[in-house]
């Protein structure tokens, strides 16, 4: 039988809220646009949350992938077709949008630190990113039209079924990322900006993940189609 004494945690382990370090302030009481002073009450949770969310999305696409592999093996009816060429253009656009988003993230950071007082610069980059995201979705739509023109509909063949399902599911998830960008833009373009670093970071992680996910899907499509 063990006997232990429970020590209270050392008093110095309990921090007083650091000024402007993200603890203790109230988001409704913003710091006159000084983003560094803005409360970031759950930055740790945001990071956990986004990784957990991305894990769930990965699991969903893993399930789709295994369904594809099983379905392809279950009968000899898998029809190979050339991927619509517009996909490659879309890929380039999406990759570029990740880069512009990284640029905006740095610009936002520069703006927040007060190195650069012009809000228009990060905002501009964010708008470019948003536009490229929209172009990507439109491009995916064009890819569907191309397939349709070839007579490949959702139910034509298991390969076309999976093509539509995978791209549509990715596009749906990407719309979530666009929503995140819109949120970032609106927080930043308020008269007194209230964009928190965790919001910016979370939205970017998600967006980059959509990129990686798309590259994975493209590889899968390229291998299987």
């Amino acid at each position: 039988m063990a006997t232990t004494i429970h020590e209270p945690p050392a008093v110095n382990a309990i921090h007083a809220p650091e000024l402007g370090a993200g603890k203790g302030a109230w988001p409704r009481n913003p710091s006159e646009g000084n983003l560094r002073m803005l409360a970031d009450h759950s930055s740790g949770a945001s990071r956990t949350g986004i990784w957990v969310g991305l894990a769930a999305i990965s699991m969903t696409f893993a399930a789709f992938t295994s369904a594809l592999v099983v379905r392809q093996g279950s009968a000899l009816d898998w029809r190979h077709f050339a991927l619509p060429s517009v996909l490659y253009f879309n890929t380039v656009i999406l990759l570029a949008s990740s880069m512009t988003l990284e640029v905006s993230r740095r610009r936002v950071a520069a703006f927040a630190r007060g190195f650069d007082s012009r809000r228009a610069i990060p905002l501009g980059w964010l708008y470019v990113t948003l536009a490229m995201g929209l172009i990507f979705v439109a491009g995916q739509f064009a890819a569907w039209m191309q397939l349709k023109a070839q007579g490949l509909y959702l139910a034509t063949n298991p390969s076309s079924s999976f093509f539509y399902v995978l791209t549509a599911m990715h596009a749906l998830h990407l719309l979530g990322g666009l929503g995140g960008l819109v949120l970032v833009i609106s927080r930043l373009s308020k008269q007194i900006p209230t964009l928190r670093r965790s919001t910016m970071d979370t939205a970017s992680y998600y967006w980059h993940f959509m990129d990686v996910l798309w590259l994975y899907l493209l590889l899968l499509l390229w291998l299987k189609f």
């Binding site: 949770a45 956990t48 949350g49």
Partner: peptide, 18 residues
Amino acid sequence: LLGSLNFISTTLDMRCKG
């Protein structure tokens, strides 16, 4: 999924001191 996300983040990141 939304609920689980919250549960995990709360457990990992929202624990009080000690």
